[in-house]
Design a protein around this nucleic acid. Structure first.
Length: 484
RNA sequence: GAGAUUGUAGCUCAGUUGGUUAGAGCGCUAGUUUGUGGCACUAGAGGUCGGGGGUUCGAGACCCCUCAUUCUCCCCA
């Protein structure tokens, strides 16, 4: 047979058993915390109407949306028309007769669409969480994939800053459970807007935010260059420089920013918001610890991290350079940075005042956060944070030593399975050597040997491979044996 | 969209200024060993050197094109 070159599309991945288990550990942890905070699950389709997505993520974002080619373009009756329409696509315009659907780019916009569609039936404030893959036609590189999962939690229909506080707590709790040391960076779009206002041009806000967002990467001088390039004058840049030079503790920063924006109503509003969240999330670490300790300890999937030594502090840090690319944010914004690892943000979010307004249903404010599971996975892998116990596959392998023997083994296996002990039998009768190697390779900790001798004496040999110890017990005692 | 990087056995990689039949380790298969694995020893299978073109007496190596990979910028999770 000819060898075909098999591959998968750029930026996508297969996940083997080990990886899936580790990923599920992250998913389960996040899901559990969302549920504890009163969020309800929601799933939306992989594809949306293209017009639902276009124009929501900025110019760059639009380019990264995966568009789906319409079916039936080869219909001979419509050839001429299709060709003409395609010409328009070549000019960069989207055309419904060529493409009218696209893959989900994030979870927030589909959620807004859902709320707009169903606002008559929903009870507000509406709190939902959503864990699904999203797709971006981006160039893959470290921590960046074309298909990746997001885990979002949003509250819509409430202006209360309590939501921001709760979401901050969710971040702290999840990362504490996972054992990742993080910095929760916080800022307010109102403060950024005030800066633009003070600099004499509210319309310059996007230019300013894009430039200052790069501060920690390219340095002050380059930021100033970029601001000049974006049409800011020397006086305006001086103001921005003053703004950027604010450092110190959260308290220091608040004091400094207050004096800078003493005359700006918008600025003061933003400062008050940050203060409120900071004050109420003060005992973040303690809160998170309590949540972890109080949750159901039978839940092995999630609560593998109650080991205190693995609990780290979450730091809530004001970062005035934080801007976030998505332009629908209007209030508090968040971004999560893992400490001790070179990796882009592993989560982010913020408040948006009128997201559903884009879909014709105004006046539903909301706030949400998102976890980037794939990057969280990479971080945990790099820092070796996955607990051993996540890797539990088959627990017991029954040796296959003949027809009569395996028949008994088969029955015993069913008994163990009823006890929820994962077990399997070697697929054919063969020599010990092979069966041992199979167990070893699949990391199966126990083997059970039932051969002609055991069959006669009505017992079986249970061998623990990691310790190389074994004991013989009666067959009817097998369900009482404790496989650890 | 721009720039770099790498591509040789299932995996990780050697392969000299171009020179006979392209190597190693691990893994795989079989045996030493019809009922106790991991070690050791022995034997074996497996490669049109990413693909196409060119230079040359001769190319895995040099040149051009192409595909793929990984990374950086842009942007983002």
């Amino acid at each position: 047979m000819a060898k075909v070159n098999v591959s998968i599309p750029q930026g996508t991945r297969d996940f083997n058993a080990e990886t899936v288990r580790k990923r599920n550990y992250i998913f389960n942890t996040i899901r559990k915390v969302f549920e504890i905070y009163g969020f309800q699950p929601l799933e939306t389709p992989s594809m949306e109407n293209l017009e639902t997505l276009m124009g929501k993520y900025g110019e760059e974002g639009d380019k990264l949306i995966f568009k789906i080619l319409n079916n039936g373009l080869d219909n001979p009756d419509k050839h001429l028309q299709a060709k003409a329409e395609f010409e328009k696509v070549l000019e960069g315009k989207n055309n419904k007769s060529i493409t009218e659907r696209a893959l989900r780019y994030d979870l927030t916009i589909p959620f807004a669409r859902y709320v707009a569609m169903n606002h008559g039936q929903l009870t507000f404030p509406f709190k939902r969480y959503q864990i699904q893959p999203v797709w971006r036609a981006d160039r893959p590189q470290k921590g960046r994939y074309r298909e990746f999962y997001q885990c979002d939690a949003d509250v819509v229909g409430s202006n209360s800053l309590l939501n921001e506080v709760e979401l901050t707590n969710i971040y702290a709790t999840v990362f504490k459970k996972l054992g990742i040391d993080v910095e929760i960076r916080i800022n307010s779009r109102k403060i950024l807007a005030a800066l633009a206002e003070v600099c004499g041009g509210a319309d310059k806000m996007i230019d300013i935010t894009i430039a200052i967002d790069k501060l920690d990467k390219i340095g002050l001088e380059k930021v100033k260059d970029e601001l000049t390039a974006r049409g800011l004058n020397a006086e305006q840049i001086l103001t921005i420089e003053k703004y950027l030079s604010i450092t110190g503790s959260n308290e220091d920063k608040l004091t400094a920013i207050s004096s800078l924006f003493s005359n700006s109503e918008l600025g003061n509003k933003g400062i008050d918001e940050i203060k409120h969240v900071l004050d109420n999330a003060k005992s973040l670490t303690q809160n998170a610890e309590r949540t972890i300790q109080n949750s159901n300890s039978d839940d092995h999937d999630v609560l593998l991290t109650t080991d205190v030594s693995r609990i780290h502090d979450s730091h809530l840090v004001i970062d005035f350079t934080l801007a976030r690319g998505l332009n629908y944010y209007t209030g508090i914004i968040f971004e999560i940075k893992a400490i001790g690892v070179q990796m882009g943000s592993i989560g982010g979010g913020g408040r948006y005042d009128d997201l559903t307004g884009l879909f014709g249903v105004p006046n539903i404010p909301g706030v949400g956060i998102s976890f980037g599971v794939d990057r969280i996975y990479d971080v945990m892998e790099e820092l070796k944070l996955f607990p051993e116990a996540v890797q539990s596959g088959t627990k017991v392998l029954f040796f296959n030593l003949g027809k009569a023997e395996s028949k008994i083994a088969f029955d015993l296996m069913q008994l163990l399975r009823e006890k929820e002990i994962a077990c399997e039998m070697y697929h054919e009768t063969t020599k010990f050597d092979k069966q041992f190697k199979y167990a070893e390779k699949k990391n199966i900790p126990y083997i059970i040997i039932i051969g002609s001798k055991e069959l006669e004496e009505n017992n079986c040999v249970i061998k623990h491979l990691t310790t190389s110890t074994q004991q013989t017990i009666a067959m009817n005692e097998i369900t009482n044996y404790i496989f650890e």
